[in-house]
Every structure is written in structure tokens, then in C-alpha cells.
Design a protein around this nucleic acid. Structure first.
Length: 551
RNA sequence: GCUCCCAUAGCUCAACUGGAUAGAGCGACAGACUUCGGAUCUGUAGGUUGCGGGUUCGAUUCCUGCUGGGAGCGCCA
């Protein structure tokens, strides 16, 4: 149990003792600067008394005093009640020791949590259309999904990362036809480029490669050639997507092919299940799903009058497939153009007999691309778009990730490549990473001087003053921040915390020497620096960023 | 017309289940180490949180009506 968890538990239990009810876990924050500036000291604060007072219909300030009295001295904090009911905590040697022990006991796992009810999570994200390269819009979903998966894992869940590959349908047909034209072109044959085909350069390249590696296909009948090229093209695109994701350090456990849903009978099975449950009916030659039974504003077609399943039908089958693979929590990360599909998918999920809460559909907002002050509309058809590889190459992997991570998924994101390139060196990611590097170099120097790190005793902890306590409080907060970001499915919370944590360290480092001061103070500060470095390193890892030892 | 998202400093964005004087970075201005890495630190300027109501001890946060921007509203994927 982490230190703050223990402290929170003492408050929670005090309430149970007093009122016989549970007000839930305590949430913490560092004391606002105003509290510290005015001399009303405090390293950590909580507004639990307000929260609980509302629940138990009592006065928050009186309640705060009750809570204060209930904190066991062994926890080693001094507590005071401020204003209408804030509880401010100041760290002391014993609490400092407890926090450091949390870190050094299991450095690589600091900030992570055990989970009594671990869920089997299937997290599907990015899933860019295979008819084109991954662009910045897909990247947002990739980054968001990947870090969210990391966070859930850190909270003890089992997470499988999945990439859905749409290798079926009219778009892929058009892609194959475009490829065919490029293939023939590369062989010096006459070719007519299909109307509405994919004009991007990458199609030409794949066509050329196909022509070089498989000139023998030229003799095939049209349909057979198209099948070969289609397969070849999809393979190439899958490889390209995987490479792009690898370049960002984002990995998937499963690359799931849409067409396998039909091959393995899931498309059919989903239909039978819904049919048996009485949620399907024919109208106008098509087959409809009664999504209005679950609050949707109209029913939705699953099988078109031409006999082809709709995109929605594939989704239903896919969710069924995921459930039958044993996942009890399905999370999909979708772009803004899918928001209309949330309701109907939840409806179908329930119609299959599952709990709507076990399907989470996360929608992130659009990325708009600006160049010289003007918005550039992306289009795969015309081949005009900014690929993720281009952006990564221009400003660097960590900078791209941090740029995407820093923003709430609910806000549209404007991306100006000129500006990003220009400012890539001032990207806050380097500020954060530099803090890690600095701390690491202090440790390296300390080891060279023959000092030991991480041996925690109460006496050494007596050496800490207000500056150290402030940084320690931030370190103690890390597990809470990770849990909060995870439970809200909002990774950008954690990147914000990483900046704060790094900032506190930079500030401390500037004002205080670590090596070469009085021996016990030196030991105490060295432990602090190391605990900081471990904490920040774990956070960087969760964010999918590198933690460089030198820069 | 309906649904979803957004509007906070000059710019890009934060602000946990409603909490203390709304915070960072970039840009501007003024400063700071002969020691462990200056990709750093400190300070100043910059705000009627789009506008109007409401809920209460307390609202950037919740409700409501506007204004402006984005996305979606297909038997496309």
C-alpha cells in the first residue's frame, strides 16, 4: 500500500467510524502555491471534508477537525484545517521515509497498482484504412490508445492491443483497381486509371514493386490478376503500417483481419444470434436491426438489399468475436467521424446479451493540418495528406508523441508543420527528459564517488526541509496520478503531471546542491534525486517515451 | 433541422468526483551559477474563463438560452 493510500484510508475509516458510511477513496493534490506563499504551510492537500460533508449533511470545517484528529501519529504528518474545511498536510521525517520506501522497494513497479478484479481488456486503436499510409489523424488515435492501454496495465488489468485491418469492401476494391493501373503502367502497358482511384505516390510504388517482383502475373486473366494485386497491395500496406507504428514505439498484440470474420463465420453467427433474439426484421429488401429498442433514434440496416453486409454488421460480428475470445472489457478508440456509431454499437452489443458497460467507445477529435496559416484538407483519394512518417522524420518521435499526448482527446487539434519543425527543440518533452538526464548524471557521479543510493533510514530523513518535502509530495502523488489518468481514460493528465514533476526537480536542482554538502544531507538528497528519477522514468515509459541517460 | 465536441493570457494548451489568489510552454521584457549537465532557474507584463440567466457557502467545471467554430447525420468504409 502506498503512503498516500494509507493516509487516505485513515480518513476514510474515520468517517466510517463516525457515520457508518463510506465516502469513497480520498483524492490528493499538492498544496496550491498560494497556501505555501502565505506561510500556511502544507505539502499536500485534500478536500475530502467537503466531499464527505455533502454526503453526510454536516459542516465541512467541523468534519475536517474530526478527520484531523483521526490521523495516527505513526503516519508522520502534521495536519491543519484551513479555510472552510481544507486539510493541509506537511511531511515529516517518518512520512518522507515511507514515501522513499515505496519507491525503492520495487523501483520498476513504483506507481503501478495491484488489481483485485483484473479485467481482460481488448483495446483496439489506430486501425487505419489499408488503402493509404497512416496520417496524423490516425496517429492521435494510436497514441491515445497505446498510452491508455499502458495505463490500464499499470493498474493491474490484462490488456491486449489490437489493430483492425479493413481488408474488405469497396474501398479496397478501388485500391486494387488503382494498383492494377499502376502495375500495367510500370510494365509499359496502356492503362486507364479508375475514376475516384487512389492517386497517392505510394500506390505507384507498390505497383512498380509488384511489376518487378511478379512480372509473371501479366499473363493472368483480369480477375485473377486483380486478386493477386489486391493481396499484394494489402500485404504491403500492412507492412507499412506496422513499420510506422514501430517507428513510434507502438506495438500491437494482434493484427486482426476483417475478412477473417466472414471466413470464420462470425458475420453469420452474429446475424443468427440477433435474429433469434428477435431484433432483426426485413424492410425494403434489406435486413434491419432494431436499435431503437435500446434508445437509438432509428433502426439501422445490417444487410443491404444487394445482399452485402454494412460496416455496422462487421462491427457487431467483431464485438462478438472479441467477447468469445474471452475479453470482458472491449475498448475501441475511434475518430470523430464514428461518433454516430456509438449508440448503435452499444445497442447491438446489448442485443447480443452483453452489458453495455463492458463496451467502451472512445472518440477523439479531429486533427487539422495547417500550412502557412491555411488549413489543408487531407484526402487519400487525391494523395494529398501529411503522413505520420513525414511528421516523425521532421520533428522526431518523442516530440510527435508528446505533442499528441498533451491534449485532451475532446479538443480538436491544430497541427502546423512549419511551426512544429521550428519549435521542435522547445517541445516540452525535452524539458521533461532533460530532468531525467540531469538526475541520472547526479547518480552516476555519486556512484563514481563511492556513495550508496537508496538506503533509507529515519535519521537521514530528518535532513529534509520544505524544498525536499515539496518534491517528495510530488513523488508520492505519482501513483494517484496514474490511477486517475487510467480510470478517466485520459492519458494527457499524466503528461501534464510529468511536466510538473520535472519542473519541481529542475527548480530544486537549481537551488540546492546534492553532492558535496554535509554527509547526511548529501545522502538524503541523493535518495530524493534517485527516487525522482525512478518515478519520472516509470511515467515516461507509460507515456511511451524514452528516458534518456544522456541527451 | 437533429446528435456529438470545442470556446480560458498575443499563440498552443492545462485545471481530478464543483474548492483556496484559474496554471504551464512559446513569444515579450528584466535578471541568475568559478562546483552535480544553462535543453536550467527567478521575476515582470499579459484574464470580466465567448455572451446572458440559473443551481449554492463556492462555478472554467453542473443546468438552461444564445453566439461562433469543428465533426457526424447513407442500404459508404
Amino acid at each position: 500500500m502506498y503512503y498516500l493510500q494509507a493516509l487516505g484510508a485513515s480518513l476514510r475509516e474515520a468517517l466510517q467510524h463516525q457515520f457508518g458510511g463510506d465516502a469513497g477513496p480520498v483524492s490528493w493534490e499538492v498544496a496550491p502555491a498560494s497556501v505555501q506563499v502565505t506561510g500556511r504551510h502544507g505539502d499536500l492537500t485534500c478536500h475530502y471534508a467537503f466531499h464527505a460533508a455533502k454526503l453526510f449533511h454536516t459542516n465541512p470545517r467541523e468534519l475536517a477537525h474530526v478527520l484531523r484528529a483521526a490521523i495516527p501519529p505513526s503516519l508522520g504528518v502534521s495536519t491543519e484545517v484551513a479555510g472552510p474545511g481544507f486539510l493541509n498536510f506537511s511531511l515529516e521525517a517518518a512520512s518522507a521515509k515511507a514515501i522513499l520506501s515505496d519507491v525503492f522497494q520495487n523501483p520498476a513497479g513504483y506507481g503501478h497498482w495491484q488489481q483485485k478484479q483484473a479485467r481482460q481488456v481488448n483495446m483496439e486503436f489506430c486501425s487505419a484504412n489499408p488503402t493509404g499510409p497512416i496520417h496524423l489523424g490516425n496517429a492521435r488515435g494510436a497514441c491515445f490508445g497505446s498510452v491508455t492501454a499502458n495505463l490500464l496495465e499499470a493498474c493491474g488489468h490484462k490488456v491486449s492491443r489490437e489493430y483492425y485491418f479493413d481488408d474488405f469492401g469497396t474501398q479496397v476494391d478501388t485500391f486494387a483497381l488503382s494498383l492494377l493501373a499502376r502495375y500495367r503502367e510500370a510494365q509499359g502497358q496502356e492503362s486507364v486509371f479508375p475514376e475516384g482511384g487512389y492517386q497517392g505516390e505510394y500506390v505507384r510504388e507498390i505497383g512498380q514493386r509488384a511489376a518487378q517482383e511478379h512480372f509473371e502475373w501479366a499473363g493472368l486473366p483480369f480477375q485473377d490478376l486483380l486478386v493477386e494485386l489486391r493481396r499484394f497491395g494489402l500485404q504491403e500496406m500492412a507492412r507499412a503500417h506496422r513499420q510506422t507504428m514501430d517507428g513510434l514505439g507502438i506495438h500491437f498484440d494482434t493484427w486482426f483481419s476483417q475478412s477473417s470474420l466472414e471466413r470464420d463465420g462470425f458475420l453469420h453467427r452474429a446475424q443468427v444470434l440477433l435474429e433469434d433474439a428477435g431484433f432483426l426484421y426485413p424492410r425494403d429488401g434489406a435486413l434491419w436491426f432494431r436499435s431503437t429498442a435500446f434508445g437509438d433514434d432509428k433502426d439501422r440496416v445490417v444487410i443491404r438489399s444487394n445482399g452485402e453486409p454494412t460496416y455496422f454488421a462487421w462491427d457487431i460480428a467483431y464485438n462478438l468475436h472479441k467477447r468469445e475470445r474471452g475479453f470482458d472489457w472491449i475498448i475501441d478508440v475511434w475518430g470523430p467521424d464514428h461518433h454516430g456509431y456509438v449508440m448503435r454499437n452499444k445497442a447491438a452489443f446489448q442485443a447480443l446479451g452483453y452489458d453495455a458497460d463492458d463496451l467502451t467507445l472512445l472518440i477523439y477529435q479531429l486533427v487539422r493540418w495547417f500550412e502557412q496559416g491555411e488549413e489543408v484538407k487531407m484526402s487519400k483519394r487525391t494523395g494529398e495528406f501529411l503522413t505520420l512518417d513525414e511528421v516523425t522524420e521532421a520533428i522526431g518521435r518523442d516530440a510527435v508523441l508528446f505533442f499528441l499526448l498533451n491534449r485532451s482527446p475532446d479538443s480538436t487539434l491544430d497541427f502546423n508543420l512549419d511551426l512544429a519543425r521550428q519549435q521542435s527543440l522547445s517541445n516540452p518533452v525535452f524539458y521533461v527528459q532533460y530532468a531525467y538526464t540531469r538526475a541520472f548524471s547526479v547518480e552516476r557521479e555519486a556512484i563514481q564517488r563511492g556513495l550508496a543510493i537508496g538506503e533509507i533510514d529515519l535519521e537521514t530523513c530528518q535532513a529534509y526541509g520544505p524544498a525536499e518535502h515539496r518534491l517528495l509530495a510530488k513523488i508520492a502523488l505519482a501513483p494517484e496520478e496514474i490511477a486517475t489518468a487510467a480510470s478517466n481514460l485520459l492519458p494527457h493528465r499524466l503528461s501534464g503531471f510529468a511536466k510538473e514533476l520535472a519542473g519541481d526537480f529542475h527548480s530544486f536542482y537549481h537551488d540546492h546542491r546534492i553532492l558535496g554538502v554535509d554527509a547526511s544531507l548529501q545522502q538524503a538528497r541523493l535518495n530524493l534525486v534517485s527516487a525522482f528519477r525512478i518515478t519520472l522514468g516509470n511515467i515516461l515509459t507509460l507515456l511511451g517515451l524514452s528516458a534518456p541517460e544522456t541527451m
